[in-house]
Amino acid sequence: MRKFEISDRFTTADIGLDLEADSLEGLFVAGAEGMFAIIFSRKPATRSTDRRNIHLKSTTVEQLLIDWLSDLLYLFDTDGLIACNYQLSIKESSPGYELNGMVDFQQFAPMTDVAEHEIKAVTYYKLEIRNIGGVFRCHVVFDI
């Protein structure tokens, strides 16, 4: 189970996401799916894909989520890559957390893909990942 909901609970000028999943990996995937749902008002048509390995290490799980989403944003901004399929593994590693993933991307097509919002950055604002009874939840705000 994983889901995201676009929310403006904590922001006036920007856009946030409520994320929920039954695993940390699911929460991270929901964050990525939500982020691209903010950028694209209509899901881009499926095209040929490019597969990349992603490896990240961060001191906290919240920092790891920011690093993960910021990396995807960077790949979109520089190479026009839209993440569309995810195989992630997240584990505690001293000190902090480590993410290993294989992500499929498709190429942004500016003439046909309806891109609505440019995301400047992923923020720390109100970001706290909680695990209550095996359900992971957090709110993440994007600077628009």
Binding site: S7, D8, T12, A13, D14, I15, I144
Partner: peptide, 8 residues
């Protein structure tokens, strides 16, 4: 100065 959220 903004007073209303984007979604609203």
């Amino acid at each position: 100065g903004r007073v209303m959220s984007r979604t609203k």
